[in-house]
């Protein structure tokens, strides 16, 4: 049977920063925080699906902030995730045009300090634009770039995984794919600005 060990905040951040055992670390976040954070969404006009979507967004934003060294443990992870969750959900409700302010219910008896995380966050549309930007590349390009820049795979790993002739062919292909993205960005100043706000925030 798998032994599930709760990580301390420090261990969790260190794992996210180094990118090691990311799968298990994210699972740990789900096991420890999903239910309580989803509770907030569900009890503030959200559905189960909303809660899932928001939590997923919270996890992505959190990892991104940790990896960019923008979360340094000023508050507990629990407080920080709760603040992200609340911020994302309120923004989503605002987007849906609901008047939440008078309906919002706060969990009683919980001693939670809220953090202002608004300066970390950008809208869902901006995030979707990033997904669409990379999504419009062909499947092979996406795989090569993600393996190289996200998974930090070597050219040799990519070569073996995608059955290319040699490393030079992979290198050329990777160059062309990245250049293709670069040209889309260069031709589209509005998209570039969105990316700057989102990715260098």
């Amino acid at each position: 049977m798998e032994v599930i060990k709760n990580l301390s905040d420090k261990e969790l951040i260190s794992r996210l920063q180094s990118g090691s055992q990311i799968n298990e670390t994210v699972k740990d976040i789900y096991r420890n925080h999903f239910e309580s954070l989803s509770w907030y969404v569900i009890n503030n006009n959200g559905s189960r699906q909303d809660a899932e979507d928001v939590f997923q967004e919270v996890v992505v934003s959190f990892i991104d902030l940790v990896q960019k060294d923008k979360f340094r443990g000023e508050s507990s992870i629990r407080t920080f995730l709760f603040s992200l969750n609340r911020h994302i959900w309120l923004n989503e409700l605002k987007r849906r045009g609901r008047a939440l302010a008078r309906e919002e219910k706060y969990e009683k008896g919980q001693d939670r300090t809220e953090m202002d995380v608004s300066h970390f966050m950008t809208g869902r549309e901006a995030k979707e634009q990033v997904m669409n930007l990379v999504g419009q590349l062909g499947e092979t390009c996406r795989k090569i770039l993600v393996m190289f820049y996200y998974n930090n795979s070597s050219m040799k790993d990519i070569l073996e995984s995608l059955n290319y002739e040699n490393e030079q062919v992979v290198r050329n292909k990777k160059y062309k794919c990245l250049k293709q993205l670069e040209q889309i960005i260069a031709a589209n100043p509005a998209l570039k600005q969105t990316l700057k706000n989102l990715l260098h925030e």
């Binding site: 992505v60 991104d64 990379v134 996406r142 820049y149 998974n151 990245l178 990316l195």
Partner: peptide, 17 residues
């Protein structure tokens, strides 16, 4: 190019999560 690289990294993270 830096933005393109960051966009890919962000895409990869979202896919993994």
């Amino acid at each position: 190019l830096k933005l393109a690289k960051e966009a890919v990294r962000n895409y990869g993270l979202k896919q993994e999560v």
